[in-house]
Simulated scan of single mutants.
Amino acid sequence: MNIFLFVFILILVILMVLYPVSGIRGIRELRRKYAEGLPYSKISFYRSSMFASWLVVFLILLLIPLSGVSLTDLGFRWGLPDRSSLSGWIFYPGIVLYIMHLGQNLYYISIFRSKSEKRKKLAGSIPDDFNFFLPITAREKKVWNYLSLSAGITEEIIYRGYLFFALAVIFPSLHLVYILLLSTLVFGVGHLYLGKEVVKSTFLGLLFGVYYIVFDSLYPVMLIHTVQDLVVRDILQEEENNGEPISRMQ
């Protein structure tokens, strides 16, 4: 077994077994402490998530000196999207969808920072067994910024840049659509710890994969992924609920 295939299998095991199992255990522990009124640290969970993602990226980057894989192969490419590689009915709607998606997220970030009524309305709709995970204090929000940037970088390297390339190398006859679907499936499994929210995360993974195909570069996808994660940062406000999640106060 060559080093490329060995690393591919190892990474799949991490993404589809270790990630969901450790994530589910971590979330259950946070939820238990939250339900029992015990102190718990969301920051520790955020940091462990970042560490796990960067560990996989480190394994991927080891392929560069060991097997001749380049950063370009992993999606680190600059330049304008190449219209010639895709039909117009995919390329142009993909560009428009990306711009609308990015604009919507930036709008929500702005609204949640400045419009308390809209923020409170959305906060009240968050399931009570999930909002314990979101940042509330200023320190938690600061670490959430790092978590969002980290996820935007590492998850796109892993699920789009690496998986798209590795699947195409190992299964050269596999159509791009199936590569997109398989990478989306792995992305969804890795986010099972989010419970019902995994459906939304999987759909977002599909969108990110489409954007990667359209732009043929990780950079635009890293940007929108980071912004997407930052949207929820300001939904819960410490000064509005004395440090408690809004839905618990109701």
Rank of each mutant, 00 (worst) to 15 (best):
L66V: 11
L59V: 08
E238K: 12
V232Y: 10
V143G: 00
Y19M: 05
S201D: 11
P127C: 06
F4H: 02
L174A: 04
I60M: 05
R28W: 04
A52T: 13
P220K: 01
S114W: 14
M249L: 09
S201T: 15
A123N: 03
W78N: 02
N241G: 02
L134G: 05
R83G: 05
S173Y: 04
S247F: 06
H175V: 15
V143Y: 07
Y162C: 03
G195W: 00
M50G: 12
S84P: 11
P220S: 01
G243T: 07
S85V: 15
A166N: 06
Y108Q: 14
L55Q: 01
W54T: 03
V96F: 15
N242W: 05
L102R: 06
Q250T: 07
S41L: 03
E239S: 13
V199K: 02
I213A: 07
D128Y: 02
P220W: 00
F171I: 15
N145R: 10
I158E: 03
F4R: 07
K196P: 02
D129S: 10
Y219P: 02
Y108S: 13
V210W: 10
F112M: 12
F112K: 06
F91H: 13
V169S: 05
I99Y: 13
E240V: 03
M50S: 04
I90N: 05
V96K: 07
G124Q: 08
L147M: 08
V57R: 00
E197N: 13
L194R: 09
S87K: 15
S85R: 15
S67L: 01
V210P: 07
E155K: 06
G26P: 07
N242D: 09
Y108R: 14
I157S: 05
L66A: 13
G94I: 10
R31W: 11
P39Q: 12
Q237T: 08
W89H: 15
P127A: 05
V221G: 08
F45M: 11
F58Y: 09
R248M: 07
G26V: 10
F130C: 07
I213F: 09
L61W: 11
I157Y: 05
F45P: 06
L55E: 00
Y212N: 10
I24Q: 07
L180G: 06
L134W: 10
L167P: 06
R31K: 15
E117L: 13
L66F: 14
G161Y: 01
T137L: 01
V210E: 08
L207P: 11
S53W: 03
I179P: 00
F6W: 09
L181A: 04
L55R: 00
I213D: 04
K42P: 06
V13H: 03
V69S: 05
R248G: 00
P20E: 10
E117M: 14
Y193D: 11
S44I: 09
I157E: 02
G161H: 02
N131Q: 12
Y146P: 04
I90M: 13
L74E: 03
P65F: 04
Y40H: 08
A138R: 14
S22M: 14
Y40F: 15
S183L: 06
K196W: 04
D216M: 12
D82G: 04
I3F: 08
T226S: 13
R47E: 08
P93S: 02
